[in-house]
Design a protein around this nucleic acid. Sequence first.
DNA 1: TTAAATTCAGAAAATTCATTCCAAATTTAT
DNA 2: ATAAATTTGGAATGAATTTTCTGAATTTAA
Lengths: 278, 278
Amino acid sequence: MTQSLDAISPDIPTDYESLKSHISTLSDSMPKRLLQCARYSLANPDRIALGTTAEIASAAGVQPSTLVRFAQTLGFDGFSQMQQIFQGQLVGRNSEYMERLAKIRESGTNTPGSILGNFVERSKQSLDDLLRQVDTAALERSIEALSAAENIHLLGLGRAHPVVSYLHYTFGKMGVRTNLLEYTGGILEERVQFIDENDALFVATFSPYSPEVVEFASKAFGRRVSVVSLTDSVLSPIARVSSTVLEVNEAEHGAFRSLSTTMCLATSIAVAVGDARK
Amino acid sequence: MTQSLDAISPDIPTDYESLKSHISTLSDSMPKRLLQCARYSLANPDRIALGTTAEIASAAGVQPSTLVRFAQTLGFDGFSQMQQIFQGQLVGRNSEYMERLAKIRESGTNTPGSILGNFVERSKQSLDDLLRQVDTAALERSIEALSAAENIHLLGLGRAHPVVSYLHYTFGKMGVRTNLLEYTGGILEERVQFIDENDALFVATFSPYSPEVVEFASKAFGRRVSVVSLTDSVLSPIARVSSTVLEVNEAEHGAFRSLSTTMCLATSIAVAVGDARK
DNA sequence: TTAAATTCAGAAAATTCATTCCAAATTTAT
DNA sequence: ATAAATTTGGAATGAATTTTCTGAATTTAA
């Protein structure tokens, strides 16, 4: 049907990967609305594959005709021709996905893909556990404590450091001032004196629990500071010196634990505190 | 528009799995042509999802109108309504997903528990997307590059910093030496000279992409260093200056993005590189 | 075998869709 | 600042698509 036209324009992408890079290349010289299309297509390829021009256009905040122009800018006849590539990707990807799912169960395969498949599976499981096992009362008290605090101090070393680093960033973006306690030699303990009774200390620590962190929290707790802790077991030594304890069972693979679930909880805490403070 | 009709026929399947059993149940009492439709649909769900009635009918050896009657026999308004379920299968929507979304909508959106519920659900979705959309070839090339590197340098600022911080820790535990590049004033750029051609640079950056990070990666790339980047879109400026690009669509809630999915990918990378190096 | 009921094919109708077109708005170059 | 070029929104168009309808064919029941 469009054979002659295909022959005329031989340089248009025929698979999704090259289409992606094609879009990415041309997007440099695209005007506002077409760039909007480019962004939307790459962010929502599924909707491009399945939607109609009207639906997609409205979701992307452009006119249907703009979508057509976008496709034509990329060298296609029109939208429909471009859509076929997105559809092809959808079908191909789905069958790959099915194969990968089947392989997850078989242990022994150590390809990057199967390792990822494993972690995805376990992380989903772990997220489910989080939602099922979370102590809602403790979560609420934690949010209250952090919302009421004059200053929030954040402490976490080793595998826990990314958690407080993320909270530092996210709280900052929401206008909540936090103090990220970095461990630079032995001077950590001295900082306890700068933590006020009206402040809160958020501390994350996982097995094996750094003694310095527990010690620091203990001292703060002794000074009647609200200590909100995030840890991997209620048996954690941090539990004794905390006002509220949040527990997370993280996905693991052999000796290695992810931070996937922990980050989900951390994000929720940040958003809830941000809401309460606004 | 079809609300009243939906209400009248409340027992039609809403996901592919139940549709399948619905079809096989009813197919017992179907006349020849409808049975033909039933068989074809179960054998070629992808074509039902993406084709037009004319195309599918011709492929299945029936009339387009028969396809419509088939859908109506199953309880649908028409073909289009049935087609949506086949499309949902392709994108990975199932009944559990629908139920959970409904639950989240029911509950108030501002209690800490519901915020957490929301993030858990979105994170799971996002993890699924990761497994579906991941570019396995790019992932494998990334692992290779990092495994082959003499030294691995890690760079990430803002929301991306927790990612490299985590990698620094985890690689360390596996005996893989890494160099975490911290941004302390303007001296970042100078460090490029210490990165060798046999080294690899792992850089994480998310929108809005820090110019310093892109600039640094660009210089390293110019020095023929393997640059493995983790970012949120192929339109990311880092993509141009990377040997391999890994893309992650992170769960978000309003303006706030988690790091849940990203951490899952990061963990997988660390484990895969650890395996390859051992 | 015959009549009634069901199923079917295909044409026709109604709707939706992708695409084109053009005037207005915006950007770029001078 | 002005003109030229580009980009855009939105209506108009024509093609394609889904759905309905009807008479013919087939099946079922008596």
